[in-house]
Design a protein around this nucleic acid. Structure first.
Lengths: 137, 137
DNA sequence: TATGCAGCCTGTAGCAACTACGGGGTCAAG
DNA sequence: CTTGACCCCGTAGTTGCTACAGGCTGCATA
């Protein structure tokens, strides 16, 4: 299949596919006589793997390691588990961070009663960290 | 105070301060005879405002608008409230997104029983979106 | 046959929001 | 008088794409 088709099949932008090829995340496919990229099912599977991993928030480098493992089925999968677990921890701490942030924002927004910017509690709160209820990032 | 002092006082990198000046977020301060930047309390307050806003996740452009309001106390603060509310919504949806992600990751990680990458459920799950419990970003 | 248009090619530049670096000037202490 | 901490500037790198510009290719239609 051509690049446009692969893009549609995987929900990826054409430019992103070429980008992944450039950075060595996807292998360079064969070319047609007209120099068009020509992909097969293996390419599609690999790109799906990449997209799915990216959607789950893994960095490109992590995806690289995961792909490498997937390419070497005889290797120990402890590394995959470690990458995923570490990432899970990061996601969890990011959630906690954002929750603190949300609380703070909600508190700030709740205090606005309209009127002039000079009296605005939102502006005031932004200027003075001491007005914060709790630590946030 | 000099830039290093301001940096320490606000928990900002020196480069970041210069960057903010370059993009017009902070006014260019006076210079000493040796061409060192020389800051006063107004600068420190403004930088604190910026840092605090950034920590709360506002974009530079949003910070610019908020600073503008803070510079014009006679203006209506509805805009500040709007920016903060919109941002709050974004944070909330980001949290929901990450929570879905966390659930999926936890599910994936939980399935790893060790062994070979070829049999690893983590790798498998990454390759096949259909194995997902729910929609994630 | 001509022509239009979708689709592909390459290479480069842009985005956010910094961060790092190289090569140099300044200043106070020892 | 030299050492080290601090400051200056300008530029390039980071992550993960995305968006051109300028030019082929391939197929359908007039």
């Amino acid at each position: 299949m051509k690049i446009g088709e692969l893009a549609r099949a995987t929900g990826t932008h054409i430019e992103t596919i070429r980008y992944y090829e450039r950075i060595g995340l996807l292998p360079a496919p064969d070319r047609t006589a007209a120099n068009y990229r020509s992909y097969g099912d293996a390419h599609r599977a690999r790109l799906s793997f990449v997209r799915h991993s990216r959607e789950l928030g893994f960095t490109i480098d992590e995806v690289r390691s995961l792909l490498d493992l997937s390419d070497h089925p005889a290797r120990d999968c402890g590394e995959a588990d470690r990458i995923a677990s570490t990432h899970l921890e990061q996601v969890e701490s990011k959630i906690a961070q954002l929750a603190a942030l949300r609380d703070e924002l909600a508190r700030i927004v709740g205090r606005c009663r309209g009127g002039l910017a000079g009296d605005c509690r939102v502006i005031e709160a932004l200027g003075d960290h001491r007005l914060c209820a709790a630590d946030h990032p």
